[in-house]
Design a protein around this nucleic acid. Structure first.
Lengths: 244, 244
DNA sequence: GAGTGGTCTAGACCACGAG
DNA sequence: TCGTGGTCTAGACCACTCA
């Protein structure tokens, strides 16, 4: 008595997980599948959207629906000490610009509105297709002045940022699940129906000053974020003193 | 030049954020809005889905679309020492059952297939409507035997679990964004097009044994997860020895 | 140009909520 | 019972990919 959409999704899911349709293979076209299941194209597309959000199927406009190779998962590592907790990128391209603090950036970095900020736009690639991106915002006095507009090397920028920076005290990450904006969908080349993992990361130094804010967006069909908390005896004691 | 969907969503978003439509108010019916924007109902519904995933609008079947009251956000606190890092629930109901290890549980808890497990199904409520849930799985020797099938008090069970448990060493949480299964959508009473935050939490004791695995699902339109990492000098040194 | 997915239409019928 | 949203149909037209 379930919906058509999920019945079709289950059938295709079985065919994929049992190997009747192999990884990398193309599914029949949407019109063909629609006539096969005797449903409309709209219904069939919503069934494919289910599999897509599970990471089993990847749609490519003008080419077709493909069974995804498994274990090509992007991992965002939480609490990482590095400048950007960017996922294990095979390749990262960066664009550096100067912007004025606006919107939520004012609150995140605790700076006045319209004050100067350096933005590092990081785009992660995997085999020439983008798979995630992040915008890193840094106050001007903590960002190296002589960075070219197009920087080839991520590590270089990271090393320069580290040098200017006082010792870190705390990293706070807030994770939400939502749909991508049209701009984000275009950058990542994903459907706007796919869920994305949005991570807001704020890094604070020992004086309590916010030295960096990073907004990351990762496609939900191939990304996950990992957070590890170690509980030593000292920490446990501390938590009892200062719960939460 | 943008899609119809996003144009309509932007217009409604403006009306909401500028206060022309107030919090708690009901929007005109979908057919009414569709004729107003001269689009089909399907297109208008997809526009509402955008606002829904932003947490601005809440649909209630048979009643209408309502502008959500802001700051009614659920927060999942990562790395919490408590048995379940359940969000700040106003009320939690629990059902205890015994299940056999299956699927991903085998790998998470590192137990043989079909071995006995205790499942605690926790449902979080807010004003009589469910807003999140979690399934906690515990090996039988670490779960109190005399728990009734329906337990009224979450704290009681939690306290009993703590007693049986050796000191904890590590909590690992994996976060993904996806669409809900039909079952999850029914439990949370959300649309299946809404994104959810799915969190898999594994707790390990000092001997390396997995003492608990928790699968949480939170609606993307009103929930976020927070993770805080403190960087002391000792920890920094440790990370240099053992990167990642 | 042929074939694919992306968006959209103008309805139909069903399920839920409130009176 | 009536009005609401939920699902679905059978198309149409556009954008993209590849030969």
């Amino acid at each position: 008595m379930s919906s058509h959409r999920h019945a079709i999704a289950s059938d295709l899911r079985n065919q994929i997980t049992t190997g009747r349709i192999k990884a990398g293979e193309r599914l029949p076209s949407e019109t063909r599948l629609a006539t096969h299941y005797t449903v409309s194209t709209a219904t069939l597309r919503s069934a494919l959207a289910v599999l897509q959000s599970e990471g089993l199927v990847e749609k490519i406009h003008g080419k077709g629906n493909f069974v995804r190779h498994p274990l090509r998962r992007i991992t965002y590592v939480g609490g990482a000490c590095d400048t950007a907790a960017m996922p294990s990128f095979s390749r990262i391209s960066i664009r550096t610009t100067h912007v004025q603090a606006h919107g939520q950036l004012i609150g995140l970095l605790r700076v006045p509105a319209n004050s100067q900020l350096t933005e590092y736009f990081c785009l992660g690639h995997e085999e020439k297709s983008p798979h995630s991106f992040a915008r890193i915002y840094v106050p001007p006095d903590l960002s190296p002045a002589e960075v070219p507009d197009e920087a080839p090397c991520f590590k270089t920028i990271q090393a320069r940022l580290e040098k200017l920076r006082p010792p870190l005290a705390e990293i706070q990450e807030q994770v939400t699940a939502r749909h991508p904006t049209p701009e984000e969908a275009a950058i990542l080349r994903i459907s706007s129906t796919l869920a994305v993992l949005a991570i807001t990361r704020v890094t604070t130094d020992r004086t309590g000053r916010v030295v960096e804010a990073t907004l990351s967006v990762l496609p939900g069909d191939r990304a996950h974020a990992c957070f590890t908390t170690h509980h030593t005896t000292e920490e446990k004691a501390k938590e009892h003193d200062d719960p939460q």
